[in-house]
């Protein structure tokens, strides 16, 4: 430890502040994909359109992702209390739900692809795959982070006092979740009402 410890100017952890700053910019990222999707929602080029969505299926995987936020926050809570065993359990549960969501997305994409919704089919297809796909990529990164967190805590590299690490991964995870809260409504449910 250094002899000249002075607390940060705002009394906040740098990494947590950094994560929030980064998340602020992510809204602009997803927003752009979403505007493309909304612009092209009817531009199907004689290919499949929004009627292709399987709402019950997507609802289930959305629900799984939503609940993964609960396990994530429980993992952080356990870490905060120093209960590393529980923390690992919840982290694994979260990663598992993330993988279930991803598996659902892969399945969904495969089905759509078989039904003719090719990336190259139409602007609608391109923008749908990009919007959902980049969200999926975020989930995948989140799963990797969680697995890393799990293995590092297993080897003792992450210790009870270091809950900031769990916290910032949690922030990222919840962010990916709330993006899906928006996407599920805007991409799937609202258009479905118009059919």
């Amino acid at each position: 430890m250094t002899a000249v410890a002075h607390s940060t100017t705002m009394g906040l952890d740098n990494r947590k502040l950094g994560m929030w700053v980064f998340l602020a910019s992510e809204f602009l990222f997803f927003g752009a994909f979403m505007s493309a999707y909304l612009l092209y929602i009817d531009t199907t080029n004689r290919g499949p359109g929004i009627e292709i969505f399987d709402i019950p299926f997507t609802s289930v995987s959305s629900f799984v992702l939503l609940m993964s936020s609960l396990t994530m926050v429980l993992a952080h809570n356990s870490h905060l209390r120093g209960d590393m065993r529980r923390m690992r359990l919840w982290v694994l549960a979260t990663a598992g739900q993330g993988m279930v969501f991803l598996g659902g997305q892969v399945y969904e994409f495969t089905v759509f692809f078989r039904e003719g919704l090719d990336l190259t089919q139409s602007p609608f297809a391109s923008s749908f795959y990009f919007l959902a796909g980049f969200h999926g990529a975020h989930v995948a990164i989140g799963v990797l982070l969680l697995l890393g967190l799990y293995s590092l805590s297993l080897t003792g590299k992450i210790k009870p006092g270091q809950d900031v690490k769990t916290e910032i991964i949690g922030l990222y995870w919840h962010f990916v979740d709330i993006i899906w809260v928006i996407l599920f409504t805007v991409v799937y449910l609202i258009p479905e009402l118009r059919v």
Partner: peptide, 8 residues
């Protein structure tokens, strides 16, 4: 890194 402990 030095300030983080206090921050936390």
């Amino acid at each position: 890194t030095s300030g983080t402990q206090a921050a936390d």
